[in-house]
Design a protein around this nucleic acid. Sequence first.
DNA 1: CGCCAGTTTGACCAAGATCAACGCAAGTGG
DNA 2: CCACTTGCGTTGATCTTGGTCAAACTGGCG
Lengths: 233, 233
Amino acid sequence: MFKQLGASGFNDGFGGQGLGDPGIALSGRLDPLLALEGIGARRSFSRDQEIYADGDPSDSWYKVVLGTIRVSKLLADGRRYIGEFCFSGDCFGLDTANERVFSAEAVCDVVVMRYSRRATERLINENAQLARCLYDMTLRDLAHAQTHMMLLGRMTAAERVASFLLDVSERRDATRVLDLPMSRHDIADYLGLTVETVSRVMSAFKRDGTIGIPTPHRIELRDRAALGTIGEA
Amino acid sequence: MFKQLGASGFNDGFGGQGLGDPGIALSGRLDPLLALEGIGARRSFSRDQEIYADGDPSDSWYKVVLGTIRVSKLLADGRRYIGEFCFSGDCFGLDTANERVFSAEAVCDVVVMRYSRRATERLINENAQLARCLYDMTLRDLAHAQTHMMLLGRMTAAERVASFLLDVSERRDATRVLDLPMSRHDIADYLGLTVETVSRVMSAFKRDGTIGIPTPHRIELRDRAALGTIGEA
DNA sequence: CGCCAGTTTGACCAAGATCAACGCAAGTGG
DNA sequence: CCACTTGCGTTGATCTTGGTCAAACTGGCG
C-alpha cells in the first residue's frame, strides 16, 4: 500500500508544512529509514508465489527490494481486482485491519524486506519521525487511490492504458523503453478491463506509431505527448 | 477525506494493535477530539455552495456537523468524478498536497467545523493521540478507497447502486427508510454511471419490490438481503 | 518437434451511454 | 389563482464501447 519509503524527498505528510514540531527530531530526518534496516528480514519469492493471502493475520508490512509485486483480491465468482503494483522501493501491506483483506503475490522473482508490526511500533516510540514517514506514505497511497478511482470511473479504455503506461514509466524512470513485468491479464485487472481490450488498445497505439511493442513485456514510448493527450482530442 | 473523527470506537490505526506506546497517553484517549473543539470554527454553507475549490491552498480540514457535502473533481471536458460524500460526523479535506486537488461543495445546507492546519499541528505536539487519530482516519479512507475501486472496476450497474444504498444506509443508521440528499447526477458521478442508468436501476429495484421510492430522495429498503446478493445470483 | 501459456485478432453480443421526450413538483410573475 | 417556466427524474429508442467467445499466433522448453 505504501510507496517509496525511503525514496527521495519525503515531506511530512501534512502538506509539507510540518504537522508536528520540526524541532523535536530535526537531526533524525533519515534515521527512521535507517533504523528500519535493523528490524527488516530479507525474503525471496518466485513468480506467482504468495507473499501473504487474503485472510492472513496482518502483522507485518513489506518493502520491495527487487522485482514487482501485485496486491489483489479475488471475488467468489472469479472476478479479480488488482489494487496496485509495487516496484523496487515501494512499500505495501500496511493495513488498517487485523486480517489481510487483499493478498500480495510476486509478479516475477522478487526480494522484499519484511518488517514486523511489533518491531515497527517499538521503533516509532524511539523516533517520532518514523510515524510521520508512515503517515506520509499513507497519504501518498490515498492520493494514488483518488487518481485511480477517477480512472476507473470516468476514463475510456484507451485513456486507462495510456495513463497506465505513463504512470509506470514515471515510477520506473523509463524515458523511452519500458519494461512491463506483469501479464496483460494483470494489467486488465488493474485497469478494470479485459485482457482482449488491453491487447487491442495497445495494438492500436502501435498501429498509429504512439508506442512500439518489440516484445509483449517491452514497450517503446515513441510519442509520450500523444499518450498524454488521449481523450482530449 | 477523513471519516468519523470522534465517532465511536476509533482504534489506533495500526490494525488496532497499538503502533505507539499505549502507556504514553492512556489518559488522553478522547482528549484530542475534545481539544479540537477549541480550534475549530463553525461555518455554514448553502446548497451547491463551494467549501473549497480545486486549486485553493490546502491549509485546513473540515468536519461535517450537519448536512451532506461532496468531494468532487471536474475535468476539462465536463466529466465529473465524485470521490466521496460526507455526512454528519465525517471529516474531509486533509490532503497531502499544498493545493486542493478536489473541490468540496455542499449537497444541501450544511454546517461544518473548519480546523486550520497550523492549529492542528500545535495540538498534535501537545497530544500524540491526535496524530494517531488522524492516521487512523486516513487508513479508514484508504480502506474505503480500496472498496470503491473494486466497485468501479469490476461491478455492474445494479451491483454499484445496491452497494451504494446499503453503504449509505449503514453510515446513516437508516434501517428501513433512507434519506438520499444528493441528486441522481451526484450518485451517478460517484458510481461511475450516468443519471439515466442510476434511475433505470432504481426503477428496476422498485419494480421487483426490493426498494420503494416514495419520493426521489427517500428510499425505502424493503429487502436488504436481496440488495446484498445482487450479482451473486 | 510439439506442447503450453500468454498474446493477439476477429466476429459477435450486451451493458450501459447517448439522445430525445415526457412527467412532475416547486417556484414565478401576471 | 393560474399559466408558464425551470430543474430533476424517469422512460424509451438507438448507438457505441468494451465484453465474450473462439481461433490463430508466438516464443520458450521439455
